[in-house]
């Protein structure tokens, strides 16, 4: 079996913030009608908690992101993704639902920085409201970063994760590196 390789292959750069490839990450996308009793019973059986709108639910080694009213994404260890998708598929076999391993479809970035530096850097590229009151820790925001769709969320004030499609991983890395160059700090978020 060949080793998983991410689009950025472990690159990282430090400017105002540190932008690093988070490495191979397991991602399972689940589309289903979460208002359906059949679906919810199946999800209880596998122990998956569906987060509220725009929120993140953390479970046993997994993080579940709310993506849309009928879609969630489960982040897990790269090696567990296939089993995770399989167990979800089995649990929802009687419902109209789809669980699929999309680990290699996206690129995951880890952003670390002090103060409001991460929010400042993201605000240069995205129209999202990045005030801590509008995007608190534990909330996921799907939005646009320059010309491409991304999603990001804060795990703490100094630590954020950003995901984008694999094909634009290099573009997103270049963008983030450019706007976090030393000397270009905005300082709006402190």
């Amino acid at each position: 079996m060949s080793d998983p390789v991410t689009a950025l292959d472990g690159q990282s750069i430090t400017g105002q913030i540190t932008i690093a490839d988070a490495g191979p990450t397991g991602m399972v996308t689940l589309r289903a009608n979460f208002a359906s009793a059949t679906v919810m019973t199946g999800l209880v059986d596998v122990g998956l908690v569906v987060p509220d709108a725009n929120q993140i639910a953390s479970g046993d080694g997994t993080t579940t992101l709310w993506m849309s009213p009928d879609e969630v994404m489960i982040l897990c260890d790269y090696d567990d993704a296939e089993a995770q998708a399989q167990s979800l598929g089995d649990a929802l076999a009687s419902a109209h639902a789809l669980a699929i391993n999309v680990s290699d479809a996206r690129c995951v970035f880890r952003l670390t920085g002090q103060g409001g530096a991460i929010r400042d850097v993201l605000a240069k590229l995205s129209p999202a409201d990045l005030r801590p009151s509008a995007l608190p820790v534990g909330m996921v925001r799907r939005t646009r970063l320059a010309q491409v769709p991304v999603a990001f969320w804060f795990s703490s004030d100094t630590d954020a994760t950003l995901i984008c499609f694999r094909s634009v991983g290099g573009y997103v890395f270049d963008l983030l590196s450019k706007v976090s160059e030393p000397g270009s700090a905005v300082g709006y978020f402190g």
Binding site: A53, N54, P69, P127, A134, R144
Partner: peptide
Amino acid sequence: PYCGVACDETEL
């Protein structure tokens, strides 16, 4: 109205 996010025009 589905996710409650205040979307900028360019996200739509």
